[in-house]
Nucleic acid binder design. Sequence first.
DNA 1: GCCTCCTCGTATATGTCGTATACGCGAATG
DNA 2: CATTCGCGTATACGACATATACGAGGAGGC
Lengths: 239, 239
Amino acid sequence: MSITIWNQPPPPPRQRALGRPEIVAAAIAVADESGAAGLTMKGVAARLGAYTPMALYRYVHSKDGLVDLMLDAAAAQVPVPARPGPDWRADLERIANDTHAMIGRHGWYAELVHTRPPAGPHQMRRLEFMLAVLVGQGAGVADAMTWTALIDRHVFGASRQEAEESHAEQRAGLTDPRQQHAAFAEIRDLVVGYGDLPHLTEWLAAPTGPDPQAQFALGLRYLLDGIAADLRYRVRSTA
Amino acid sequence: MSITIWNQPPPPPRQRALGRPEIVAAAIAVADESGAAGLTMKGVAARLGAYTPMALYRYVHSKDGLVDLMLDAAAAQVPVPARPGPDWRADLERIANDTHAMIGRHGWYAELVHTRPPAGPHQMRRLEFMLAVLVGQGAGVADAMTWTALIDRHVFGASRQEAEESHAEQRAGLTDPRQQHAAFAEIRDLVVGYGDLPHLTEWLAAPTGPDPQAQFALGLRYLLDGIAADLRYRVRSTA
DNA sequence: GCCTCCTCGTATATGTCGTATACGCGAATG
DNA sequence: CATTCGCGTATACGACATATACGAGGAGGC
């Protein structure tokens, strides 16, 4: 098979100038600035100096391989404790918040994470920790896997939405609030044209709400509450 | 501005053979079979008969415009009641399940929904209904918007994960369970090579768990429980 | 019945991207 | 000093989206 870069042979040890770390760092810099859509082999090569795109292929096999490495390098920025602490909920909250913060720095992560299997070592270690936290509370591995999937879905989904919104703002009105207002007015006209959508119209007239961090915390709280309840139930029934 | 197709002028009314409905239906058929990655202007044109890709542009302006139309056409397959029923939770559960089922039929939806603003009429009507359900329980529009975002995040995220998994199976072992087993063994070897990841290793040795539908229902239940609690609190505090 | 115009689909071309292949240069090795 | 081999390059190819210009063929006016 060998789908991911993790199955491929490592790059040649012989060093001249380039290497995986330099290439991945350059790719991350490009993606930080231009987003996933702006990530280009040519762009990465140029960022490294006077290189051609083909120079990268000796080290990363393909663009997908480069993305694998980028995702794992970003995952490495999320601190993972050696072992679960005394408070399982704090453990999960912490790693969720840290992941959320990491994606805040690297908006492309949320766009790319679903395009590749999460098979990198740091991604795996992060997952292992979350499993360990839940298994330590009496959960089975299968349930723990379900719950971590639930949490990560929220973490990645919320991060992606925030990244999209800031990106849309950047693409549109940028610094000009007048233009932003015009964009909203255009959407509102569209909605009015669709017929009777009072609540949507009301919200578009005054698009308020909790800030992104609060929305993120809210959803996380719901999920952890649910997990806590089922965890209590399961522990009681197994005891 | 005019970012989406909804702001663009409609296609020429004069009919010869092609029209938006035919093109969108063909595009959906192509995407159903080949996924979002396989959606190509050439492919859509070929599916319609002896057409060139350029023939489509008179009707849909661009590929993004076509995607806008596809997303809204798929959203139109989700039944939206005229008004909220007596049981708000049943209302939201129902529309979440129906959306989940729709994406089960059109796996590309989960891949494409985040690439375009959700500005189509059917998408808007669906959202309006969800808002109406929550506002009818005493919520403010802003809170309702936050909650619907939470629910949709789960619906789209779970659907996407299911689509990915079935797609990965299809790409790999297909009908052959031996090959599927080999793929898992390869990942397990990888994990073992990363060091001490006992829970992950255990799960990979026997990757079990609730079926996708149960996982979907579980996450939805957690979210609705959380919303219910906050809704009670808010209604009480406003009363 | 003929001319004109307008619409529809096509033909052609351009630019971007990922990437396979073959090669030349220069350094490390014997 | 000669050889081998690793590193980056040059070139080329096939998708793909899409701008532009054009030709065919029917509709409407005379």
